[in-house]
């Protein structure tokens, strides 16, 4: 059984049908990429999965439980974390306070400390800057903070929305390395990216979105060699 199963999802913005009936699955341990151009509906899908938007039709099932109508603030304690597009760190809180917000629903102080130590180990830069206000971090550091904050909830699946956006190529490599390490650590990853090449290089499987529909799906390596994908998304 799939860990996360999205079925026949339809999402509207007012009268506009942004997501036109899509279905996909994420199995435990996989890295799944949703790729597609700007406006294809990638972010809308993630927002619907974590309850920030409600679908008109369709369902979202996580670990056998229908979470379609579960409000956003109850999602994280089910084991699903979402690193939103544009990082959305709390600019006026310190790095440390941001990380603790990530552990908001957890109560065991000892375990929270362990998670904090693990996040600091993975992102030494965050420990160096733990008392700095998050709004003054660089873009790459904010992305690390957003990821660290999500990991503080000890998720079994992590949804990442455009983690490479606005970052230099070196930083993009660094962020993707970290995503691979998170995956190797046993967390399932659902990755949304415009940088299709990078996303396909670390994903197991991928879905290609165009204007609210899935037009192609399959093994990430095979998709990378697909001629239409090469032309449309890989710039070859």
């Amino acid at each position: 059984m799939a860990m996360l199963e999205v079925k026949d999802l339809e999402v509207y913005y007012g009268m506009i049908r942004a997501i036109k009936g899509i279905s996909f699955q994420v199995n435990e341990g996989e890295v799944i990429a949703l790729i597609g151009a700007n406006g294809a509906g990638k972010t809308t899908i993630l927002h619907t999965v974590t309850g920030l938007l409600s679908p008109k039709k369709g369902s979202v099932v996580f670990e056998g439980r229908d979470i379609t109508k579960v409000p956003a603030h109850k999602i994280v304690s089910l084991g699903m974390a979402h690193v939103p597009e544009g990082r959305r760190v709390f600019a006026q809180l310190t790095v440390y306070q941001n990380l603790m917000m990530g552990a908001f629903t957890r109560t065991d102080k000892g375990e929270i400390e362990e998670s904090l130590a693990a996040v600091y180990k993975r992102f030494p830069r965050l420990e160096e800057r733990k008392n700095q206000v998050a709004g003054t971090l660089s873009g790459g550091e904010q992305q690390m903070l957003a990821m660290g904050r999500a990991l503080m909830s000890k998720p079994r699946i992590i949804l990442m929305d455009e983690p490479s956006m606005g970052l230099s190529p070196i930083l993009v490599n660094e962020i993707f390395d970290i995503i691979q390490k998170v995956s190797a650590g046993g967390t399932t990853v659902l990755l949304v990216e415009q940088n299709a090449k990078k996303a396909l290089s670390i994903a197991d499987r991928a879905y290609v979105l165009e204007t609210g529909k899935i037009v192609l799906e399959g093994d990430a390596k095979e998709l990378m060699n697909d001629d239409s994908i090469k032309k449309a998304y890989l710039g070859e």
Binding site: H73, I75, H82, P84, L93, F104, T105
Partner: peptide, 10 residues
């Protein structure tokens, strides 16, 4: 600061 991100924190 950010109601959406706050909800994602639980």
């Amino acid at each position: 600061e950010d109601k959406g991100a706050a909800q994602l924190m639980g």
